[in-house]
Simulated scan of single mutants.
Amino acid sequence: MRLRRLLLPATAVAFLTLAAPAVSQTPMDDPLDARDGRRLDRMEKVVRELRAIVYQGRDTGKPVVVQPAETDYQIQEMTRRVNDLEQSLTRLNGQIESLTHDLDQARRAGEAAQAQNKALTDRLTVLEQRAAQAEQPPAAMSDAAAPPPAAAGPSAAEAFAQARKLMLTGDYDTAERAWEDYVSRFGDSPKAPEARYWLGKTLAVRGAHADAAAAYIGAIRGWPQTSWAPDALVDLSRELVALKKPAAACQMLAEFDRRYPKAMPAAKSRAVAVRGQAKCA
């Protein structure tokens, strides 16, 4: 009996020894679920990053810049880009508003220029009509009241030469009457435009600016390509300045540059002077 009791523990030991491998081979449930596994992976990633930071500081001796977590950094980067886009949009809106304002001003300036051009055209038409009416001969009188026929006067060439001679001597009053007589008698002759040009000069001498402007308009009608035509256009612009019409003068001077690009230097210098008086842009 005692031997059985002594052998029993040995037998139990042997049984446990033989059963141990079987027990150790039995799989155990993993105490970590999937969420804990991800947390563990993140902790390991943080540990690796900290280790890299420590090694970087130790090896380089430079200050270690710790970047935020990847997700936070991306959010901050996206926020910065959104702010940049908002600032760019704000600048673009400001530029668009400025361009719209400039376009409105340009449109208003164009409308004002068109209105001013129409007004100038109307004034020139009225002046031309007045000049045409002045050139018309008076109505014929009845035979009973008609005076006796006068003696034949000088020819067109002689009348032109006489009026020009009076101007050269400085007798502008007599020259004015001579030019008026020439225009009245020989208004359709080839020299009539030039006669009106010289008539405008005599009228300008005594300050008859409106009449002088009308004479110059008659002289440059059709924009003749003669030696005196650029000077006539400059003189017309000067008379318009005297009549307080600087805008009209500036438009005439613009025509001067376009119609007479090969004008003499003296005429161009006078045009520059009158442009300054009119304060042309």
Rank of each mutant, 00 (worst) to 15 (best):
A163K: 07
P21W: 08
P138I: 01
G153T: 08
R221M: 03
R259M: 06
A219N: 00
E49A: 12
A146S: 07
A106W: 12
A119W: 06
E44P: 00
D104V: 07
M167L: 14
L203H: 08
E255Y: 05
K45T: 01
Y182G: 02
T226R: 14
A248E: 06
A152L: 11
K245F: 01
R91Y: 07
T174R: 14
A210S: 06
Q251E: 07
D188F: 05
Q114N: 05
T79M: 10
P265C: 07
E135A: 15
A139E: 15
D30G: 04
A210C: 00
A247L: 03
G218F: 03
L16V: 07
V47N: 08
T17H: 06
D257F: 00
V13P: 01
Q76G: 01
D181S: 14
R108L: 15
Y172M: 12
Q277M: 07
K45H: 01
A151Q: 12
Y197F: 08
V64S: 03
T121P: 02
R258F: 02
R108P: 11
Y73S: 12
K268T: 11
C280A: 00
F186H: 13
E176L: 07
D257G: 04
L6D: 00
A204K: 02
H209V: 11
A109Y: 01
K279S: 10
T79I: 08
W223A: 14
A134L: 11
A229Y: 05
A163I: 05
A156P: 13
E111D: 13
R38F: 15
K279G: 08
L16S: 03
K201D: 15
P154Y: 08
A106M: 13
D29K: 05
D181T: 14
D181Q: 10
P190N: 01
V65H: 11
G110C: 02
Y197P: 00
L3V: 14
A144F: 09
D72I: 10
T226P: 01
T60C: 03
K165L: 09
D30V: 12
L127F: 12
R185Y: 03
R42D: 15
A14H: 03
T169K: 10
W228N: 09
T226A: 11
F186W: 13
P137Y: 06
A249S: 02
P193Q: 05
K201V: 13
I96W: 05
Q114T: 04
L89I: 09
V65L: 12
A192M: 02
A113N: 05
R4W: 14
H101V: 04
A242I: 01
P246I: 02
A212G: 00
D211N: 04
R35Q: 04
K191R: 15
F15W: 08
P230G: 10
V205G: 00
A175E: 10
L199R: 10
G57I: 05
D33M: 03
F160R: 06
A112D: 12
A178D: 05
N83I: 13
L124K: 14
V272P: 00
A212I: 03
V13K: 00
